[in-house]
Simulated scan of single mutants.
Amino acid sequence: MKTGRGILGIAVLLGAMLPASGCGTACPAIGYVSTIEVIVEGDTTAVHEVQMCTDEGCSAPEPTAGPAPSVIVSDQWVPLPNGGFSPAPGASIPPPTYPDAPFLSYKPSVGKWAFYPAATGNGTPDRITLRALADDGSVLSEQVNDLEWTKEDPFNPCGSPVTTPQIVFIVRER
Rank of each mutant, 00 (worst) to 15 (best):
G111E: 02
A11C: 05
D43Y: 07
E37C: 08
Y32N: 01
N82C: 11
W77Y: 15
V110A: 15
T150F: 09
R127K: 13
G4T: 13
T64K: 14
K107W: 06
V73L: 14
P63R: 14
A132G: 10
R131I: 01
E41T: 10
Q51F: 06
M17N: 04
V78C: 10
A26D: 13
W149G: 02
F115Q: 01
G90N: 07
F103C: 07
G84F: 05
K107C: 09
P87D: 08
I170W: 09
V168H: 08
V144Y: 01
K107M: 11
N122H: 05
L130Y: 03
T54I: 00
G111M: 07
S109H: 09
P67G: 13
F85Q: 07
D146R: 06
E62F: 13
E148W: 00
D135Q: 10
P89G: 13
R174H: 08
I10H: 08
A132N: 04
A134F: 05
T129V: 09
F85T: 07
N82Q: 12
R5A: 11
T97C: 06
M17D: 03
L18K: 06
C23Y: 08
D153Y: 05
P79M: 15
G24L: 10
E148K: 04
G84T: 04
T164Y: 03
S86F: 12
P102L: 09
V50H: 02
V71K: 04
R131W: 01
P125H: 01
T120K: 07
I7L: 12
N145G: 05
P102S: 13
S21Y: 15
A114Q: 08
Q76C: 15
S34M: 02
G6S: 13
S109D: 06
C158H: 03
D100I: 07
S105Q: 09
P63M: 15
P94W: 13
P67T: 09
M1V: 06
K107D: 04
A134Q: 07
Y32V: 06
W113T: 02
I10N: 05
I30Q: 03
I10D: 01
Q76S: 12
I72T: 13
P69R: 05
A65S: 13
P89E: 15
S59Y: 02
T163I: 04
V73F: 08
T45L: 14
M17I: 10
D55I: 07
P102H: 06
Y106S: 12
F155E: 07
A26V: 08
D126K: 13
P81W: 06
C58E: 00
A29F: 05
P67C: 09
I72R: 12
A119Y: 11
